[in-house]
């Protein structure tokens, strides 16, 4: 046991290092340099700012990457009709059970039989895992670049079908299930 103990020698500080004044002056210099840099940015060249890095939220927003996982949304085809066929696989795969769906039968259409009469996602429950997007066999649900979901009451967090379609928008696709399966 004794042989395993290794005494580590503490590194000794030099005289200047022990005195502290040098590093303090160096740090203050950096602060002053940035102060005047930002001041110049704000006063004369805000459009081409060089020093300031603060984002002016909410006027400025982050440009999310393409694989960003935001809120889930439903997409429509070129003719503005829902791509969702209410197969309920997203509802099944959703780990926090945020998705709820009420499927119904379409009586008049001859190509499409089933559609979601109601489709709700509880954004308070959603954990943005993206399983719904991965599982969807119809490519009807996607995680969009939407991260700011703030309301004062709980009911508003439950997004209905219309709201989800508005968020998802139209997605160009060569498969048009309403025209030809």
């Amino acid at each position: 046991m004794k042989n395993r103990v290794r005494v580590v020698k503490r590194p000794q500080l030099s005289f200047l290092e022990r005195w502290y004044l040098g590093p303090v002056v160096k740090g203050l210099g950096m602060t002053i340099k940035r102060f005047f840099g930002v001041l110049t940015d704000v006063l004369f060249r805000w459009e081409n700012k060089k020093t300031a890095i603060t984002m002016q939220y909410p006027e400025e927003r982050w440009d999310f990457k393409d694989n960003f996982r935001g809120a889930p949304a439903l997409v429509m085809d070129q003719e503005g009709r829902s791509k969702c066929v209410a197969c309920q696989i997203c509802e099944f795969v959703c780990p926090p059970k945020a998705i709820t769906m009420w499927p119904a039968e379409l009586e008049d259409e001859d190509k499409v039989e089933k559609y979601p009469e109601r489709f709700e996602i509880d954004m308070l429950r959603c954990i943005y895992c993206g399983y719904c997007e991965e599982a969807c066999p119809e490519e009807a649900i996607f995680l969009v670049k939407e991260a700011e979901i703030v309301y004062a009451d709980r009911e508003s967090f439950v997004y209905d079908k219309d709201k989800l379609h508005a968020m998802g928008g139209i997605r160009e696709d060569r498969i048009m299930k309403w025209k030809d399966k």
């Binding site: 209410a86 197969c87 309920q88 509802e91 099944f92 499927p103 119904a104 039968e105 039989e113 089933k114």
Partner: peptide, 9 residues
């Protein structure tokens, strides 16, 4: 029973 529920639910 049509479209009322998937059997796995």
């Amino acid at each position: 029973f049509r479209f009322k529920s998937r059997v796995w639910f």
